[in-house]
Design a protein around this nucleic acid. Structure first.
Length: 204
DNA sequence: CCCTGATTCGC
DNA sequence: GCGAATCAGG
C-alpha cells in the first residue's frame, strides 16, 4: 500500500475528526498505526486539537460508538446470530468489515429522567421476559463485579451492558471482558441474545 | 493488559 | 518518504 492522494485525504479527515491512529489504520487497511502516525508527522499535522477546532463539540465518539441498547430484543441485536451458544468454533475472526457507521453517538447529556423513551428503556433489569434462571442469576452475580466503566472507557473488548439508571449518576457499564466478537461479557450475552421465540404477544 | 501518540533510524 | 521498533505515558 502506498499513500495515494485518496488515502492521505482519508487520513487527514479522520485525524482531524479525532480518530486514533489505530482506527485510521484499520480504516485504511494495509497499514499499521505506526505507519499512520509516521505519516501524520511527516505531513506536519501532529498537533491535533489545537486550532481548526471548529465545531466538533466531541471529537472522540468513543471508537465504534457502542451505544448499547440491550433489552432482550433479538431483532435489533447487533449480531444477526440468534444462536444462544454456538459453541466455540472458528477461531479466526476473519477480516471484519467493521461498518462502523461512526454516526457520532447523539449521546445527549442524560438530563433528568426526561428522556428514556417508552420503548426499550432500562435494559439493566432483565426482568419480565422468560430468560433462563441461570442466566439471570449469572447477570445479577456478575453485575456486582462490574468494573463500572464510563462510556469513554469502553473498548471493543469490554462489556457494554449498561447498569443502573441513566437518569441518575448511578449509571455505568459492566466493563468486564466481552466475548470475542460480541459486545457483552459472557453473562450479558446470555440475556442479550435470546433465541427469539416465545414472547408472542397475545392479541393486543 | 489494553490503548495512546512520539521518536528513532535502517531501508 | 516509509514504517517497525521502541519509547513514554494513561
Amino acid at each position: 500500500m502506498s499513500w495515494t492522494d485518496e488515502r492521505v485525504e482519508t487520513l487527514k479527515r479522520m485525524w482531524a475528526e479525532g480518530q486514533s491512529a489505530s482506527q485510521i489504520a484499520k480504516e485504511l487497511g494495509g497499514v499499521t498505526r505506526n505507519a499512520v502516525i509516521g505519516k501524520v508527522h511527516r505531513l506536519g499535522l501532529s498537533n491535533r486539537g489545537e486550532e481548526a477546532e471548529a465545531a466538533p463539540a466531541e471529537p472522540k465518539p468513543a471508537a465504534a460508538a457502542p451505544i448499547p441498547e440491550p433489552a432482550a430484543r433479538p431483532e435489533a441485536a447487533p449480531e444477526p446470530a440468534p444462536q444462544p451458544k454456538p459453541a466455540a468454533a472458528a477461531a479466526a475472526p476473519a477480516a471484519e468489515p467493521a461498518p462502523e457507521a461512526a454516526a457520532a453517538a447523539p449521546q445527549p447529556s442524560f438530563n433528568r429522567r426526561t428522556l428514556v423513551p417508552s420503548g426499550q428503556p432500562l435494559p439493566p433489569q432483565p426482568s419480565a421476559n422468560e430468560i433462563s434462571p441461570e442466566a439471570l442469576a449469572s447477570v445479577r452475580e456478575v453485575e456486582k463485579r462490574a468494573r463500572k466503566l464510563t462510556l469513554m472507557e469502553l473498548t471493543e473488548r469490554t462489556c457494554k451492558w449498561p447498569i443502573g439508571d441513566p437518569a441518575t449518576d448511578k449509571f455505568w457499564f459492566c466493563g468486564l471482558p466481552s466475548v470475542p466478537g460480541k459486545p457483552y461479557c459472557e453473562a450479558h450475552v446470555g440475556v442479550a441474545f435470546q433465541p427469539m421465540s416465545s414472547r408472542r404477544d397475545r392479541r393486543r
